[in-house]
């Protein structure tokens, strides 16, 4: 098994290349999922605020 990681002496270079690629190609989808959640929660908060304002307007708060 260990000679597999040695890659005939090129281990650092082969695993440096594949490792960085794997790191980025896993990180990007995770960042995308987080970005999607953030947008939805922001839009939800804005929608709730708008509903909140609408309610106070209806209850004749304006003097």
């Amino acid at each position: 098994m260990s000679e597999f990681f040695a890659m005939g002496g090129y281990g650092l270079y082969v695993w440096g290349s594949f490792g960085m690629s794997a790191l980025l190609m896993v990180a990007e989808p995770l960042l995308l999922q987080r970005q999607r959640r953030e947008i939805i929660t922001t839009l939800l908060r804005m929608a709730r605020q708008k509903r909140g304002e609408a309610r106070t307007m209806d209850e004749g708060v304006i003097e």
Partner: peptide, 16 residues
Amino acid sequence: PTDYKQGEGYRIIFIH
């Protein structure tokens, strides 16, 4: 297969 000149190092080609 292993490359006759670059041995295992050439496998980087598969991502490069």
